[in-house]
Design a protein around this nucleic acid. Structure first.
Lengths: 150, 150
DNA sequence: CTGCGTGCAAACTGTTTGCATACGC
DNA sequence: GCGTATGCAAACAGTTTGCACGCAG
């Protein structure tokens, strides 16, 4: 399978867009990161290595989203999170309301539910998001400790 | 069953908070609205009837969310949407990417999936959101018409 | 050498907050 | 009257945009 970087490069060429130092650095960073990150995270981790601006980070992230190389998530924290998805199976998220940790999980049943509702309502699905909010096991322990202190 | 307004009033009294003209107007508006609205929608629909400010709208919406009378949703449109939930069954959303219409649907299977993953991962669930994005049947027709025109 | 990409700063959107005043309880 | 709620404007966070310059193809 072609590397993600190669895919990105091909898309750029195809559309007459340019493969710049900034796009290369950002893409490499993202393709080697197996987690959820914000625009700010990316900017922070690149700004000392390449000359890059926040504006370029936002523009490039949007470019990657439009081309389905990364996915945008809204976990209700007032900012967007992104995640590399090219060639990966889709999955869902468990978001801890205390520590902010994001775990992933898969479920074939969910796929079925989506297919079913799409058929029922004659809805053409492009994507879906299934987020479960609550407390991860570590944070539950914390909460329990604090409760005993009182 | 007590009316939603009554519930709200009781919560306020219990917490030593006040039942003001603004809170009353906002609550009545929301309790009589069976759809998804933004803070701006509420402000617009009230500003000519009561003296109310955007700040108060935001503060009151947050108060209602904290007390589980309304629910906050993030459909990735850059602003929050709210929905009256008190005493209603939870449900999921179909969001049309073209016209913005929001349809609702229920699914017992989803509940099962949530319970299962919570048990597996020892995750204490507070809430979940399941949003399906795509094109509603009307908008698919539109798209089809436009395609034939070309 | 053409025109897309970049950095910068300003603009923008939705939301929150500090403060003096108003008003429920 | 006490203390919470309000309106206003300013502050804020994240993101987008206009413009002059830079650089990939």
């Amino acid at each position: 399978m072609r590397s993600a970087l190669r895919v990105f490069r091909d898309i750029l060429r195809e559309k007459g867009l340019k493969f710049t130092k900034q796009r290369e650095a950002l893409a490499k960073k993202i393709f080697s990161t197996r987690s959820h990150f914000s625009a700010q995270d990316i900017y922070e981790s690149l700004k000392d290595k390449v000359q890059i601006s926040r504006a370029t980070v936002y523009r490039t992230l949007n470019l990657l989203v439009e081309n389905h190389i990364i996915e945008e998530h809204d976990f209700g924290k007032g900012k967007k999170f992104y995640e590399f998805i090219l060639g990966l199976e889709s999955h869902n998220h468990l978001i801890c309301l205390k520590c902010g940790k994001i775990e992933e999980f898969k479920s074939d049943l969910i796929e079925k539910v989506v297919d079913e509702i799409a058929r029922d309502r004659n809805f053409r699905v492009s994507r879906y998001s299934f987020n479960v909010y609550g407390y991860c096991s570590e944070c539950q322990e914390e909460l329990f400790k604090n409760e005993r202190k009182r």
